[in-house]
Design a protein around this nucleic acid. Structure first.
Lengths: 220, 220
DNA sequence: CATCGTGTTTTGTGATCACAATTCTGTCAA
DNA sequence: TTGACAGAATTGTGATCACAAAACACGATG
């Protein structure tokens, strides 16, 4: 249980980022976090620097690290890479998925349906995350997996923040089902296509939310 | 000139890695490097941790950081991702290349021809690196660019080490010329295809060298 | 001769301190 | 009211030290 202190703090920060607990543009100060966690500044510094190296945070020398604000451009840039890599991961995973993993995917889909019905945003996002994570995890390529996780970390801070229950729509789960059927038949190409459609649909959704957010920022 | 100390050390280590100055499996010890550079262990630690976060070095908790040994599997994994991302970068760069950048590419090709003729391995690798770097740099997607650079950093330590003058072949520059012609005509698809062939050819070459290296290790 | 165990050294990790660069705050001048 | 500027407070960076875990060397034991 007792790992490295800096590793623990890294995990906490990472989860916080993925959960959207930090506002884009917000500056994370070493001493503040150290005081909050009750540690010395040292492991906090290490954890922050690691996140900067991974692209999850941005920091100029001699200046406070901050959560990178999301722009249309950056979102599109990340999206383009995600599309290529996650598509590739699905296609590679298709012939390698075990029965257990398929079962997990099925359960995730069930729970997403329920979450949508109950308008439980947090639950939906969690299961959506797990669905994709399990799927990509079976691709057999750790380098690819790691790169994908990095990209998720870069979009996480903003989309968990913007996505509200008003945006929950049954359509969101359709592509998961398409992908699942294709995977059952071992059709990698079709699964890839379905996931790419999922990303595309979800991505367009988020892009709209981002525009709305900009508009609101201009007013308020 | 005087940036962050840890940034400077990071750059030095990075260059050293790309130049193949460190053997795969070699362990980099904080105090040793600090003594060698004449600094305190602190900025060295930060630089090493950054490289670990980028995947260029590997380190388990409470253990020395080391240069990851290259295996067939890992090489294929990295290669698969490189193929997708570098191909995408070329296609995106094709309509954006300026006349200046095209000129740089042309000069790189010229110099590679000369380097091959003179059996200047180091010169060839430098220009090859610059050729690809300039090409990808024009893709207009910083996220993509950063990811590609990370992957280069992961293969760098081993291929600059294994590639010797015996392996210099004129064929190596053919695909660059194909790509260049396609770029002049603004044909992104063709340029992508040429670069993918280049990667494929070069990658197969390196894979063979890797096998030879394994065989030698088994004997010697 | 091989293998395990023990004591020593090495090495990463975290805390504390010193310093310089940045950021903040309040005041003055246009 | 707005802008710049000087002082103070904040904050990242690097050095030094303390400690525990890992790596190592060497002798005991089968």
């Amino acid at each position: 249980m007792a790992e490295n202190l800096q590793e623990q703090l890294y995990q906490r920060l990472r989860e916080g980022l993925l959960a959207g607990q930090f506002k884009p543009g917000e500056r994370l100060k070493i001493r503040d976090l150290a005081a909050a966690w009750g540690t010395s500044p040292m492991p906090v510094r290490a954890a922050l620097q690691r996140l900067v190296a991974e692209g999850a945070l941005e920091g100029e020398p001699q200046r406070s690290v901050r959560v990178p604000p999301m722009t249309r451009e950056r979102f599109k840039q990340i999206f383009q890479v995600r599309m290529a890599l996650e598509g590739m991961a699905v296609e590679a995973a298709a012939p390698r998925l075990t029965a257990d993993e398929l079962e997990i995917l099925r359960v995730c889909m069930e729970r997403m349906d329920i979450a949508i019905e109950q308008r439980d945003v947090q639950g939906y996002l969690n299961d959506n995350s797990q669905f994709h994570r399990v799927l990509y995890g079976a691709c057999g390529n750790p380098v690819l997996l790691r790169t994908i996780e990095n990209l998720w970390l870069q979009v996480g801070p903003f989309f968990n923040r913007l996505f509200t229950e008003a945006d929950l729509s049954l359509r969101l789960n359709d592509f998961h089902e398409d992908a699942f059927k294709a995977l059952l038949e071992g059709d990698g190409k079709a699964a890839r296509f379905a996931i790419e459609q999922d990303l595309s649909y979800f991505g367009q959704f988020l892009l709209n939310l981002l525009e709305l957010d900009f508009a609101q920022a201009r007013i308020g």
